[in-house]
Design a protein around this nucleic acid. Structure first.
Lengths: 191, 191
DNA sequence: ATCCTTTGACTGAACGGTCGGTCAATAAAA
DNA sequence: TTTTATTGACCGACCGTTCAGTCAAAGGAT
């Protein structure tokens, strides 16, 4: 009744699935979500177009999977526990990690940034993003509160806006943007 | 032997052209450049699809015109003269103006931001942008140099990254982002 | 007044091409 | 034979773009 074992199939599917995701990330990051075609992704993944639809129900589903994986990756990297109280060292480490993500994984981060202003995907983006970043936000404003800022929430918003700006510029001009120096300035200012 | 006068035609064309540009800005800002179709723009402008091509050679040309107009608008608003030496008041005014652009003209600025990560248009964008923003950059780093920063260029890059981040967040969450408070914090920090 | 000619803005059907998505047929393994 | 991954021809929809033709307006001629 069963040719290959369930396990064999599962492993096969897992690998193929990942190959497709990797290819999609590359193509999306290089061409942008809308300009990237399913055929391009299939070719990049060395797979037929049809097979894509055996693994994902739609092009959009591929995108959402990628974004979800990205957020999970970030959460795991930062290891923020809800309600965590930040020491100065921890705060500095978080700045360091956050900026490094953009530098070390430009593809993933470019994709994420490029979606921020694509109105038809932004709601879906926010939906999966918000619950995962709120603990981070909370700890941040708590940190600023402890530092004596009169409006910790505003400080937190300014801080995270600055961080995003730095990531953005680091991505758009990776050869000239002085990441390390800027990182030090961010730390000087906020920590 | 003569139909409408030259002048009549010119005025007519000027109005229609602007109507098309306004419609295009709306549609581009709401749907993003790639998702927006020429038909959508035509409908928004109350004009036939064909007429669009009487006024602009291509969809891309419409976009480039919009972007160019935006930059001219910004240059005129900031009134930076090449080589200008900034006083503290002037520097503060520039911060104020820059952030206000994003708040007061969200459509235009959203469009501009959404293009930053659309790889096939970015080169064209940079081409028309760079010569117009370099005077600004120069004056900035000169200001930081005068303030005694040891690396004025890095400071300038950090500063403009922060500004972009603030504009970005102000656009993405206009209802909750505390623009005025953040503006004061930017001034406190950099001026 | 009435025609007639000339102009260029304007329309909408149509074009070649590409898109996301489907599906019948096949390959391969047990 | 059964099961499941895999293929690529194929579909309808829509894309940006083109173009043959329509139309209102204005002035000269009658």
């Amino acid at each position: 009744m069963s040719p290959r074992t369930k396990q064999q199939f599962e492993e096969l599917r897992k690998d193929r699935r990942q190959a497709i995701l990797n290819a999609a990330l590359t193509v999306f990051a290089n061409s942008g979500y809308h300009s990237a075609s399913v055929s391009m992704i299939a070719k990049e993944a060395d797979v037929s177009k049809g097979l894509m639809y055996n693994y994902f129900p739609s092009k959009e589903a591929v995108l959402l999977t990628l974004v979800n994986d990205l957020f999970d990756h970030v959460v795991e990297l930062l290891r923020i526990t809800p309600g965590e109280v930040l020491t100065r060292e921890r705060f500095i480490e978080l700045i360091d990690l956050q900026i490094d993500i953009a530098v070390k994984e430009p593809q993933r981060w470019k994709l994420y940034m490029s979606l921020a202003f694509q109105p038809e995907v932004t709601p879906l983006l926010m939906e999966t993003m918000l619950p995962k970043v709120t603990p981070f936000m909370m700890s941040m404003s708590q940190y600023f509160h402890a530092k004596g800022y009169e409006d910790p929430v505003a400080a937190m918003r300014y801080f995270s806006a600055s961080l995003d700006g730095v990531q953005m510029h680091a991505l758009l001009d990776p050869d000239n943007f002085p990441v390390e120096k800027v990182k030090q300035m961010v730390i000087m200012q906020f920590a």
